[in-house]
Computed example of a mutant assay.
Amino acid sequence: LRTTLLFLSPKDLYTAPDSCEGRCEEPYSEEDECHCNTECERYHNCCEDYYRHCQPEGFSSSWDAITDEDLLRISEQLYRADHNKARPTDIAINPQYQASPDETDDQEDRSPQPLYKYVNEELFSKPTYASFIKLLDNYQRVTGREEDVTAEELREQDNFLKEVMKTELMKKLFAFLHKKNRYGSEQEFVADLKEMWFGLYSRGDGEQDSSGFEHVFSGKAHTSGMGGAGQCRDGGLTPGSRLCLGEVKKGKVSGFHNWIRFYLLEKQGIVNYFSHNFNGPWDTYPDVLGLQFSWDGFYKEVGSAFIGCSPEFEFGLYTLCFIARPGRACHLSLGGYSLSIQTYPWTKTTYGNGKKYIATAYVISP
């Protein structure tokens, strides 16, 4: 008899911890980085290649899967349901210089005037706007500094969620996700929204210093040892209120994709608009711009943002894409025009039964 010895490499013996190759329908383990069973769609913690290895036919292989066609339909419905968006007369912008791709990183101010010529601030008295703006003063700017969440701030989070869930837009989103078996009740949906958006995790050295909401809507400045605590300045919309700066890291702005925050900080002289590299095809609001700007001395090379939408519109679309296409481009249709959103989950820590927080979400600009 002749014995043949097979020498297997580690690649043959072990599956990569972030892959579903050979792991489909593997029982859940909290030690896994990502998951490959059918429940991972519900908990938005699938490995990036889950659909390639475990669902060869793609999303359409399951009755409650969210297909590309589903996303086009529901995004148009949400677009039409944004009743709190700005009217054409509510906002006047002055985009000025359009930067070429090789000009976006040169940090040169090519637009002498502010981006916003006029905003009808009566918009900000609407309940979803008012509750959203109250959240903007709750964050430290610099990564690595622990966020101290007070009882009042927790109430403000709950109030924002309560107000957005009163809107037709968010009710349509919940109905869609409920039909797709992602949530059993509105209460479950709201509880998950609070965790995925407001749950704290560390972008620094272990401090609970960031959340999806702060990163996307408030922004973070990355200082890389440049110092400086998160700054707050007087000048909110109500007497005695303050607007705090968000996230900065390695001398650059991280996140910061919200038009309301941009307008309020530009009005105070804290944000300096430099140029834009993309202007969407919409002739009404919401529109989309890709922006270059300086934020209290820190630069943002490309900050894409909806212009003139309601808070619930952004919040709803980003939530939809995070649940349906986490870590991938999410292709939507708004008013007959194509638009894509990119989301990424935070992979280092989880909540609940292995669910992942939102790391970032933004409009993909060409």
Score class of each variant (00 low, 15 high):
13 L>S: 06
62 S>H: 05
222 H>A: 11
80 R>T: 05
207 E>A: 12
363 V>K: 08
234 D>M: 11
193 L>F: 03
14 Y>P: 00
277 N>R: 08
341 I>H: 00
203 R>Q: 03
133 I>L: 11
260 I>A: 03
338 S>R: 15
244 C>F: 14
198 F>M: 00
82 D>W: 05
239 P>F: 03
90 D>A: 08
68 D>M: 06
271 V>P: 02
277 N>V: 03
348 K>R: 15
89 T>P: 01
329 A>V: 02
33 E>Q: 14
147 E>I: 12
261 R>L: 06
50 Y>N: 07
224 S>T: 14
149 V>F: 12
293 F>G: 04
52 R>E: 11
216 V>D: 06
36 C>G: 06
313 F>N: 06
238 T>H: 07
97 Y>L: 09
307 I>A: 00
41 E>H: 08
249 K>G: 08
11 K>I: 13
153 E>F: 08
362 Y>P: 02
79 Y>L: 04
211 S>F: 09
302 V>W: 01
146 E>M: 05
318 Y>G: 02
227 G>M: 15
349 T>G: 14
257 H>W: 03
331 H>D: 12
228 G>H: 04
309 C>D: 12
73 R>Q: 11
240 G>V: 06
181 N>A: 14
295 W>L: 15
251 G>F: 04
131 S>C: 13
355 K>I: 00
43 Y>H: 04
42 R>V: 08
173 L>R: 07
114 P>L: 09
59 F>R: 14
146 E>P: 04
193 L>G: 06
78 L>A: 07
283 D>W: 08
296 D>A: 12
352 G>T: 03
262 F>A: 01
179 K>H: 14
124 F>V: 04
119 V>F: 11
83 H>D: 06
216 V>I: 14
108 E>M: 07
352 G>R: 02
242 R>V: 12
48 E>A: 12
17 P>F: 03
74 I>W: 01
261 R>N: 15
213 F>C: 10
225 G>W: 14
6 L>E: 07
235 G>M: 09
215 H>E: 08
70 D>G: 08
84 N>L: 10
202 S>E: 02
274 F>N: 06
218 S>E: 05
193 L>D: 00
86 A>D: 09
274 F>L: 01
188 E>W: 10
351 Y>N: 10
213 F>W: 00
117 K>D: 13
158 D>R: 15
226 M>D: 08
182 R>H: 14
336 G>E: 09
218 S>M: 03
111 S>T: 14
77 Q>Y: 05
303 G>P: 01
194 K>C: 00
259 W>F: 01
264 L>N: 01
56 P>V: 00
54 C>A: 10
174 F>T: 07
349 T>C: 06
111 S>M: 06
213 F>H: 04
36 C>D: 12
152 E>K: 12
25 E>F: 15
205 D>K: 15
279 N>K: 14
175 A>W: 11
238 T>W: 14
67 T>A: 00
112 P>M: 08
17 P>R: 13
118 Y>V: 00
141 R>A: 09
261 R>I: 02
